[in-house]
Amino acid sequence: MNFDITRDGSPLHAWKNSERMASVPVIACEQLVPAHARAVIISPHPDVEILGCGGLLQLLARQQRNLMLVSITNGSASHPGSKLWTAERLGIIRPQESAEALRRLGLSMNRLQWIHGGFPDADLAGRQPALIEFLRTYLRPTDVVFTPWRDDGNSDHQAVAQAAVAVGAEIGCAVHEVPVFAWQWASPEDPRIPWKRACKIHLDRWTQARKRHAIQAFASQLSGDPEAGLAPPLTPAMLERMQQPFEVVFV
C-alpha cells in the first residue's frame, strides 16, 4: 500500500461524525488480555507505546496484568540533520521521556518489565532476522502482544510488526496491531484500513486525561528545529486524533 505520512488526514470532526468509526465494535480490556496472560507492548521508538496504547496500559495496570514493554530503538533519528536535537542527545532524552510518560500514566516500574533492544533507529527494515531472534528470546506462548500496525506508513513500524507476527505464528501467542501514524494520513472511510479487524477500547475521561498528560512528556517530539527546517514530529492535528475517547486495535 502507498502512504504519505506527511499528508494531514481528516480533521477530528470527521472522525467524531463517522458512521464507520461508530460501527466499530467495542472490546473490553479483559477480552483482549485474559487474567492468565502477560501483555507485551512493542514500541519501535519511544512514545509509540503511549500514542497507541496509553489508555490500554492504564487499564491493564488497573487489572493487575503482568506487563512487558519492549523498546526496539532509542528513537535517536527523529530529527535528522538537527544540531539542536542531535542523535546523541535524542538517544538519551527519548527513553527518559518514555519513563516520565509511564510515570504520568500511573504505572509502577516495579510491576513493569522493560526491555531495551538497542537497535538502530530508522534502520529496522533490513534487520528482520535479528528482530525475529530478539523477540523470540522474550515472547511466550501465553503472551498477548501489541505492536504498531504493519501498514502504518513507517518502515520501522512495518519491520517490527512483521517480526512480531512471525514470532507469534511460530510460538502461538496472540499478536494485535495498533494504528499510530495512520491517524496522520487516513480518513474514516479509507479502504486501506482493515476495518473488519478493528475493535475499539473505550477510555473514560480520567484515562484520557492521563494519556494526554503522558504525551506531553515527549518534549522532543513536540518540538521541531526551524534552523534545520524540521517541523515537530507530532503535530497538534495528529495528537487530536490520537486523543479520542477510545483506542483502536486490529485483532
Rank of each mutant, 00 (worst) to 15 (best):
residue 47 D to T: 08
residue 48 V to D: 15
residue 49 E to Y: 09
residue 50 I to A: 11
residue 50 I to S: 11
residue 50 I to C: 11
residue 51 L to I: 06
residue 51 L to Q: 00
residue 51 L to V: 01
residue 51 L to N: 02
residue 51 L to R: 04
residue 52 G to P: 03
residue 54 G to I: 02
residue 55 G to I: 00
residue 55 G to Y: 00
residue 56 L to K: 01
residue 57 L to N: 10
residue 57 L to F: 05
residue 59 L to N: 10
residue 59 L to S: 11
residue 60 L to D: 06
residue 60 L to I: 06
residue 60 L to V: 12
residue 61 A to T: 13
residue 61 A to H: 15
residue 62 R to F: 09
residue 63 Q to C: 12
residue 63 Q to Y: 11
residue 63 Q to F: 06
residue 64 Q to T: 13
residue 64 Q to G: 12
residue 65 R to T: 02
residue 66 N to W: 01
residue 67 L to N: 08
residue 67 L to W: 02
residue 67 L to H: 05
residue 68 M to Y: 05
residue 68 M to G: 06
residue 68 M to N: 09
residue 69 L to F: 01
residue 69 L to Q: 02
residue 70 V to A: 13
residue 71 S to P: 03
residue 71 S to K: 09
residue 71 S to D: 15
residue 71 S to E: 15
residue 72 I to P: 01
residue 73 T to Q: 03
residue 74 N to G: 13
residue 75 G to L: 01
residue 75 G to W: 01
residue 76 S to P: 03
residue 77 A to C: 11
residue 77 A to H: 11
residue 78 S to K: 03
residue 78 S to G: 12
residue 81 G to W: 02
residue 82 S to D: 10
residue 82 S to K: 03
residue 82 S to F: 03
residue 83 K to N: 14
residue 85 W to Q: 10
residue 87 A to G: 07
residue 88 E to Q: 15
residue 88 E to W: 08
residue 88 E to K: 15
residue 89 R to S: 11
residue 90 L to E: 05
residue 90 L to P: 02
residue 91 G to D: 05
residue 92 I to S: 14
residue 94 R to M: 07
residue 95 P to V: 04
residue 95 P to A: 06
residue 95 P to W: 01
residue 96 Q to H: 12
residue 96 Q to D: 13
residue 98 S to V: 08
residue 103 R to I: 07
residue 104 R to D: 13
residue 105 L to C: 06
residue 106 G to F: 00
residue 108 S to M: 08
residue 109 M to D: 14
residue 109 M to K: 14
residue 111 R to Q: 14
residue 112 L to D: 11
residue 112 L to Q: 05
residue 113 Q to S: 14
residue 114 W to S: 13
residue 116 H to C: 12
residue 117 G to K: 00
residue 118 G to F: 01
residue 118 G to Y: 01
residue 119 F to M: 08
residue 120 P to E: 13
residue 121 D to P: 02
residue 122 A to F: 03
residue 122 A to K: 15
residue 122 A to M: 13
residue 123 D to V: 03
residue 123 D to Y: 10
residue 124 L to V: 05
residue 124 L to T: 08
residue 125 A to N: 13
residue 125 A to W: 03
residue 125 A to T: 10
residue 125 A to D: 13
residue 127 R to E: 06
residue 127 R to L: 11
residue 128 Q to C: 12
residue 128 Q to K: 09
residue 129 P to Y: 07
residue 129 P to R: 03
residue 130 A to T: 10
residue 130 A to E: 15
residue 131 L to I: 04
residue 131 L to N: 03
residue 132 I to G: 09
residue 132 I to S: 12
residue 132 I to N: 12
residue 134 F to D: 09
residue 135 L to S: 07
residue 136 R to N: 13
residue 137 T to D: 12
residue 138 Y to P: 08
residue 139 L to G: 04
residue 139 L to Q: 04
residue 140 R to P: 02
residue 141 P to E: 10
residue 141 P to S: 09
residue 141 P to Y: 06
residue 143 D to S: 08
residue 143 D to Y: 02
residue 144 V to L: 09
residue 145 V to T: 04
residue 145 V to F: 04
residue 147 T to E: 06
residue 147 T to N: 08
residue 148 P to K: 01
residue 149 W to P: 00
residue 149 W to D: 01
residue 150 R to G: 07
residue 151 D to A: 14
residue 155 S to T: 10
residue 155 S to G: 07
residue 156 D to V: 00
residue 157 H to T: 03
residue 158 Q to I: 00
residue 158 Q to T: 12
residue 159 A to V: 00
